[in-house]
């Protein structure tokens, strides 16, 4: 029993140590926004001696921040809706319509998960430019959807195939066609997987950096990831301002994480471990 007790203590100390490693940088960032530059030098991680609220105030009053957040929101929402709709419809053709050769088409989509976004980025850039989509949200949204489809289709197909087959038969007897079955039965029954995929698509899109960097030049259209880098470029050494800005941009992600935690974990474990 004594040994067991010791074990537990070792375990808790170990976990605390790692929790410290994870949390200290985050706390330092949040608290840093309340400090003067001088204090930031002498006391980078502790509580501020002198709380300065003006840095956070300035950031909150910065229209650029809000504009970039709004842009990110628009881009992510469009990506979300299109990926969910396109992914679910496509997965349904594999799970229920099962046309001749559907396995090959499915494998073709899955290939898309195998290589990084960056490999074709230059031709993609040329394509977006030739389509006149540079400096527009569509230029970011459409490739994001295209790249998000593979994972969405994989997860949706697996889920749809697990719906009881008799449900489809019952619906057919009730007079439901394929499209109707999809919209009236499959989609309402798929909320867990829609949420899981949705959370992932949303987070990926919200955090995307490379694609908007390549596609968007006009800083009015910048999503927050580009915005934050631009802000940091302007106020390079005024760390208290930069940290305040960083902390505020983290808030939506944090709030979202707390709300959607269940689905994030489900997506990881369901999607990842089975995948």
């Amino acid at each position: 029993m004594k040994k067991r007790f010791m074990n537990d203590w070792v375990k808790i100390c170990y976990l605390m140590l790692i929790a410290g490693f994870v949390l200290v940088p985050l706390l330092a960032a949040v608290l840093g926004g309340f400090k003067s530059l001088g204090e930031l030098q002498s006391n980078p991680i502790g509580l501020p001696n002198n709380w300065e609220f003006e840095h956070y105030g300035a950031v909150l009053n910065n229209p650029f921040l809000w504009n970039s957040m709004k842009n990110s929101f628009v881009i992510s929402s469009m990506t979300l809706i299109l990926t969910l709709l396109g992914g679910a419809m496509t997965a349904f053709t594999f799970s229920h319509i099962r046309f001749v050769g559907h396995r090959y088409v499915y494998s073709y989509f899955l290939l898309g998960m195998m290589f990084p976004f960056a490999t074709g980025i230059l031709p993609l850039f040329i394509k977006i430019r030739d389509l006149g989509l540079l400096d527009s949200f569509y230029g970011v949204v459409i490739p994001q959807v295209a790249f998000g489809l593979a994972m969405a289709i994989l997860l949706f197909k697996t889920f749809f195939e697990q719906l009881p087959a008799e449900l489809f038969d019952a619906a057919r007897v009730d007079g439901c066609g394929y499209a109707r079955f999809f919209f009236e039965i499959v989609i309402p029954l798929s909320t867990p997987i829609l949420a899981t995929v949705g959370v992932f698509v949303l987070v990926t899109s919200w955090n995307n950096y490379l694609l908007p960097l390549v596609v968007l030049n006009n800083s009015d259209l910048y999503p927050w990831t580009l915005g934050i880098m631009q802000y940091q470029g302007e106020f390079a050494v005024e760390w208290n301002k930069v940290l305040a800005y960083v902390s505020i941009t983290v808030l939506p992600a944090l709030a979202f994480f707390i709300v959607a935690q269940k689905y994030i974990v489900a997506g990881l474990t369901g999607g990842a471990v089975k995948g």
Partner: peptide
């Protein structure tokens, strides 16, 4: 003009 009752009942859960 037929109706069918299934083994698993196949009721629409939602």
């Amino acid at each position: 003009n037929i109706a069918m009752v299934f083994q698993s009942y196949a009721l629409y859960p939602h």
